[in-house]
Write a protein that binds this DNA or RNA. Structure first.
Length: 576
RNA sequence: GCUUCCGUGGCGCAGCAGGUAGCGCACGUCAUUGGUAAUGACGAGGUCACGGGUUCGAAUCCCGUCGGAAGCUCCA
């Protein structure tokens, strides 16, 4: 089921009703701001008394009451004109809503107060309003500021639409990787082990391993050299890279800086290790580009509220690589990195779910970024050219770069509509110099190479989570931990089931089911586990030396021989 | 980390004006050998997240801790 289209003008009205109703019930409340979007609408308030979930129904009732009485006018006026209008005639309160403006403003008169919205609203009050949740949100989106109370809601023309909305919410839960990943026995967690430290169960491990082998093989074809580096290092390494000052709080540090001679840390990233590998030899311009890749673990001490399923964890495995190249090779390297990612994305069939983000620095945020305006401008120009030349659609985002350089992020949304970075290609003009890297050019001069950081398939845990949600658990055949189950109509076929099982074992991931249950029941059980092919055999099949095949979706593919079965789908990882 | 909500057997839930736990699925045993999405009978499984308090008595009320969810903030 697709996302329910939430009408922005209805939502705008809903937000106004919400603000008005809250003002009516809590006269001392201070209004923050609001917004409408895919989630419906929200409004922020500063209450003088704590307001909780149980108060929502009261506010909802007031919204319904006000909705019936509201006099609405949609005016072709600017915000300041509207405020002037009300300056004469009473006490309006101005509501500013972020979102799409349609050149109009909405004014809702509610008794002796009025709400002016710098936002398009519909002319008729929504007949159904529903408040969906109440949470906190920082004033102006800054954690240093006071936390306001944010109330979310939806508004509809009819109860049918509300019912559809509820259905959609249910569907979201059915796709949520954090739910189905546990149901399908792909992963679990244990409070004794800790937050953000999932246990990947055998079936989940098979999926991740399949992805990993696929990516590693593909990278090897493309000139990457795989390495292993330690999970642990002396703090000196991250002091040299600059990470210690930027991110010490987010690292797992072993030892106490004040007491111990040597302090260690679990690696929060692989770059300094790959840099050390580069540095272990003298490099010639002929050697470049050098592509060092690693299926590397990373450890980051995320704050407790920031962990989520497999998407945001404290330990994860990155399809990581660092490419050291000459200045004249940077664009070519970016091209090939994007081509690899594009191949992976298309092979997985998720090209319509991702978009490219050009993540730039913010010259005003001096704490976060390396202070070298010229280098930033130059490297951003390089990336822009790559994007433009490849005719790629992308969004630009200021203040989203890494501290050492700009990047191209491949973004996606989870089932709840929350955006995450799936893959990334980053240009680094700083670390190579910090570590004193060089190569010898054709004139015998020492030159500092450029460094490109990239994660071809991102973090396996996160990509796995995304795929589970995208396919609602029904992964492509080649990724399925069990690709087929063979079962008999009765136990009289146990020997034939075993024969088919042994015949197929090693050629695909197959299981057999000889439980003394009705075959319909067994089919249902395995379909629920999202196993792509269900092979059923009885006396008829045995006599003909064939098999009957059904899919997890319920279609009957009929009777066929083994060769025909292999023609049904792609059992192995895609290649170019 | 902050805000709100939540925590009863593997999963989904009921029980909560306080009187030491129930249902469905799953699981086990037996019977059934059935031609395509739930065969039947019987059975096992829980100190109601943990710790403390109130009480003659707490799953139920109060406090704290841990864990989960969504939102905010953050993500090298």
């Amino acid at each position: 089921m697709n996302a329910v289209e939430l009408n922005e003008e209805l939502s705008g009205f809903g937000a106004l009703l919400l603000a008005s109703a809250v003002k009516s019930i809590y006269p001392t409340v201070k209004l923050g701001g609001g917004s409408v979007g895919e989630f419906g609408y929200y409004f922020d308030f500063e209450f003088s008394v704590p307001v909780k979930t149980e108060d929502l129904s009261k506010i909802e009732d007031e919204m319904k009451r006000l909705g019936k009485r509201a006099e609405v006018s949609v005016m072709e006026k600017t915000k300041s004109e509207a405020v002037k209008l009300f300056d004469k005639s009473g006490e309006p309160f101005l509501v500013e809503l972020a979102g799409t403006r349609k050149g109009k403003i909405g004014i809702v008169k509610l008794g002796n107060t009025s709400v002016v919205a710098d936002f398009a609203i519909c002319e008729k009050s929504p007949s159904v309003v529903k408040l969906t949740q109440i949470t906190g949100a920082y004033w102006k989106g800054d954690a240093k500021n006071k936390m306001l109370t944010r109330i979310y809601g939806v508004a509809f023309k009819s109860k049918d639409e509300l019912a559809k909305y509820h259905e959609w919410q249910e569907d979201i839960k059915r796709r949520d990787h954090n739910k189905i990943g546990r149901e399908l026995e792909y992963f679990t967690t244990d409070p004794m082990i800790g937050q953000g430290l999932p246990l990947i169960l055998p079936k989940g491990a098979r999926i991740i391993k399949t992805l990993q082998r696929w990516v590693e093989d593909e990278e090897e074809k493309r000139g990457y050299m795989q390495v292993y580096t330690p999970d642990l290092t002396k703090s000196d390494l991250f002091k040299a890279s600059g990470h210690w000052t930027h991110y010490k709080d987010g690292m797992f540090v072993i030892g106490d800086e004040r007491l111990d001679d040597e302090v260690f840390a679990l690696k929060p990233m692989n770059c300094p290790f790959h840099i050390a590998i580069y540095k272990s030899q003298i490099r010639s311009y002929r050697d470049l580009p050098i592509r060092i890749s690693e299926t590397g673990k990373q450890y980051r001490n995320e704050n407790s509220g920031e962990m989520h399923g497999l998407t945001r964890v404290r330990q994860y495995t990155l399809s990581d690589a660092h490419i050291f190249c000459r200045p004249d090779q940077v664009q070519q390297i970016f091209d090939e990195c994007l081509q690899l990612t594009d191949f992976l994305v298309r092979s997985l069939g998720i090209q319509d779910r991702i978009w490219y983000r050009f993540s730039k620095w913010d010259p005003n945020n001096r704490e976060k970024y390396i202070d070298n305006k010229e280098a930033w401008e130059k490297s951003e120009a390089v990336i822009r050219e790559v994007l433009v030349r490849n005719k790629m659609k992308f969004v630009e985002a200021a203040d989203e770069a890494a501290f050492y350089g700009p990047k191209i992020d491949i973004q996606a949304k989870n089932v709840y509509g929350k955006e995450d970075t799936l893959f990334t290609v980053q240009l680094d003009f700083a670390l190579a110099e910090k570590f004193g890297l060089s190569y010898i050019d054709e004139n015998g001069q020492k030159i500092t190479p450029f460094l490109v950081h990239r994660a071809s398939l991102g973090a396996y845990e996160r990509t796995f989570a995304f795929l589970l949600e995208h396919f609602a658990g029904a992964l492509p055949v080649w990724l399925s931990p069990t690709q087929a189950v063979v079962m008999g109509i009765t136990n009289k076929q146990d020997d034939y089931v075993d024969e088919i099982f042994k015949n197929l074992r090693g050629k695909l991931r197959i299981e057999k089911d000889i439980r003394a249950e009705k075959v319909g029941y067994k089919i249902r059980e395995h379909s629920k586990k999202k196993i792509p092919y269900l092979i059923v055999v009885g006396e008829k099949e045995r006599e003909e030396g064939k098999i009957s095949v059904r899919t997890r979706e319920g279609s009957d593919l009929g009777t066929m021989n083994i060769e025909e079965f292999f023609g049904l789908g792609q059992f192995n990882a895609p290649t170019e």
